[in-house]
Design a protein around this nucleic acid. Structure first.
Length: 626
DNA sequence: CTAGGGTTAG
């Protein structure tokens, strides 16, 4: 379809020039539409019309045309337009440089910047700001320094935007101190100047200056400038570590509300995201939802932040409901991040089927080379029972895997009791020159533990600590304790725990508990439970387990003591339940539950299975004896 | 035709 009607024929000269004026304005309008819609066709139609109407050398239209082509992802077309213009204005150059920058062809952008001198076009503030952005995105610090020199010579360092761009360039190159030097020499600063410094400090600053981040915020206000939505959303990710910072987060939210930060209607997109994320991180997902509800127009970031909040806090169903609403009600298509965020919800809600659906969707959108997505898929396929699919994603050669891919696959093998494969993978990873990190180590060690590969596991543990300089964490130590405990070396496990370089956490004592149950050692079991109660006084499970332990040996006085302790602390235990989906219907059940209509045949089947398992275990034992 | 912010994986 052609959106242009045939040109009107005019009679008088006045009418003709009026038509020309309105034609160029129409074209300008349409070019703006092309940019807004990323429409290459419309851009080409405008281009053709410009040529036929004799607007080829119109500087304003040519500038727009250059950026329209660049926005549509064809900077080469932009360059052809640029070359065809006889008069090269600074606007034209800026437009093309910006077009190159948008399409990440940094060398062309820098090349044009250098050629401007030969073209006799002087760079202006826009040129410098854009080229500095190019330098930082291309991580070309040397070029950035040269531009800095140029800014000093031409006096553009005194321009607020140019100086802000300079600071930003230095921050992105990890040169926070250089950034601060520029900042200190600025005659005038605006809110953005402070925002750049604050954001830079978040990323790199700690090592370079003794100042705390919130000191900068105070100084900013002393300078007579008020933190804006940018400032607040930069600060929010810092608010989670301790109680004081947590309170800062709430204060920032209050500040944002009081000052109506954002767009005037509802909350700002970005700020809304950060707030949702903040409340999710501090496990107040309901408050996050309140923010979410206040945002009037939501985009994929807002939805994904909220979905992620639910999933991270264990509200998997809510996450899935929102994932559905996002697409059905708001017509927002999920992004790769949305998929990564929703994937963990498959584990206990949708199972393998859900993972496959997400994988299929990713393939249709050609996202199957995305590392994070692949890693999440490896993890979820393993967790949903399909080790083979996990392996297939892991071995897909079109994905260049990373450290996380290795550890996901190793834990996957571990989950499926394939310790040998996990250790094989670990050694292969090392052979390929990858260094293990704490999480990879956790993955391989837990796999060893589950498969009884104690010696192998200890060897890996020792080499990782001694040769690769990994500092043992509580999780790693829990794996070692678990490994020793499962193999029946309970006293060695206890010995190991005593010599651990850090305070043993709940995971460590938890490992010892399960080991002492398997190997029938009530003394160690009792000891471990008592440590657990000490560490997690609010967790009712530990009390119940300890109480049950003593009930089984009829030590009723101890049982009573534990129950009283629970009562005093006001704890009650909700019984855990399990469930299974059969033909789309979910059946949930408790321990010793006889409520199901088919209860009798279920237990019959269970007894049969138990017999089979015991038989299998016996034959495995006798095989070992040989 | 310019600077600054958002959601992700073991």
């Amino acid at each position: 379809m052609n959106i242009f009607s045939a040109p009107k024929t005019s009679t008088s000269v006045v009418a003709r020039s009026a038509t020309l004026l309105s034609q160029s304005q129409t074209l300008l309008h349409l070019l703006q539409l092309s940019v807004a819609d990323y429409s290459l066709i419309l851009t080409q139609q405008c281009h053709a019309r410009m040529l036929s109407l004799g607007f080829a050398q119109n500087p304003l239209l040519a500038t727009k045309l250059i950026s329209a082509y660049a926005t549509c992802g064809v900077p080469n077309e932009s360059r052809l337009v640029f070359d065809s213009l006889q008069l090269k204005s600074v606007y034209l150059c800026n437009s093309l440089i910006n077009g190159y920058a948008k399409n990440h062809v940094y060398s062309d952008a820098l090349g044009l910047f250098q050629r401007m001198w030969f073209l006799g076009v002087a760079a202006d503030d826009y040129t410098l700001a854009t080229i500095l952005k190019v330098c930082s995105e291309a991580t070309d610090l040397d070029a950035g320094k040269l531009v800095h020199g140029r800014c000093v010579r031409t006096g553009f360092v005194f321009d607020v935007v140019v100086a802000n761009s300079l600071m930003s360039m230095y921050c992105k190159s990890g040169e926070f101190s250089e950034s601060l030097k520029v900042f200190d020499q600025m005659p005038h600063r605006n809110v953005s100047s402070w925002n750049v410094v604050i954001a830079g400090h978040v990323d790199t600053g700690d090592r370079y200056c003794g100042k705390q981040i919130f000191d900068f915020v105070k100084d900013m206000q002393l300078d007579g400038l008020k933190p804006d939505a940018f400032t607040v959303s930069t600060l929010l990710p810092l608010c989670s570590e301790d109680v004081e910072k947590l309170d800062y987060g709430r204060q920032l939210h209050g500040y944002a509300v009081r000052n109506k930060l954002g767009l005037g209607f509802g909350l700002d997109f970005h700020l809304g995201c950060c707030l949702i994320d903040f409340y999710s991180r501090i496990k107040r997902v309901v408050l996050g939802r309140r923010v979410f509800n206040q945002i009037e127009t939501r985009n994929v970031y807002t939805w994904t932040a909220m979905i992620n909040g639910y999933v991270k806090n264990g509200a998997l169903e809510e996450g899935l409901v929102l994932f559905d609403e996002m697409q059905r009600k708001d017509r927002v298509r999920p992004s790769r991040v949305s998929l990564v965020s929703i994937l963990p919800a498959c584990s206990s809600v949708t199972g393998l089927n859900g993972v496959k659906q997400i994988h299929g969707y990713a393939i249709r959108r050609e996202w199957n080379i995305d590392v994070s997505l692949s890693n999440a898929l490896i993890d979820m396929y393993s967790k949903c029972g399909s080790l083979n699919y996990a392996i297939r994603v892991f071995e897909d050669e079109s994905v260049s895997g990373d450290a996380i891919s290795w550890s996901s696959m190793m834990s996957g093998y571990g989950l499926h009791g394939k310790g040998e494969e996990a250790t094989c993978l670990y050694h292969k990873m090392l052979q390929l020159g990858n260094k293990p990190d704490t999480i990879a180590l956790v993955g391989v060690l837990s796999a060893c533990g589950r498969s009884g590969l104690v010696d192998e596991g200890l060897q890996i543990y020792n080499s990782a600590i001694n040769e690769y300089g990994i500092k043992p964490t509580v999780e790693i130590c829990a794996c070692v304790a678990d490994m020793l405990g499962r193999s029946g070396q309970l006293s060695q496990a206890l010995e190991f725990i005593k010599t651990m370089p850090m305070e043993p956490g709940p995971s460590v004592w938890g490992a010892l508990v399960s080991a002492s149950i398997v190997h029938g050692n009530p003394e160690i079991q009792d000891l471990a439970y008592r440590f657990l109660i000490q560490l997690e006084p609010e967790n009712p499970s530990n009390y119940i387990s300890l109480s049950n332990l003593h009930a089984s040996s009829k030590k009723w006085d101890t049982v009573a003591q534990v129950r009283t302790m629970m009562k005093q602390r006001g704890l009650t235990k909700t019984p855990g339940c399990s469930w299974i989906s059969i033909n789309g219907i979910t059946h949930s059940f408790y321990a010793y539950d006889k409520l199901h209509p088919s209860s009798e045949s279920i237990y019959e089947m269970l007894d049969g299975l138990l017999l089979l398992m015991k038989g299998a275990a016996r034959s495995l034992d006798s095989e070992k004896m040989k």
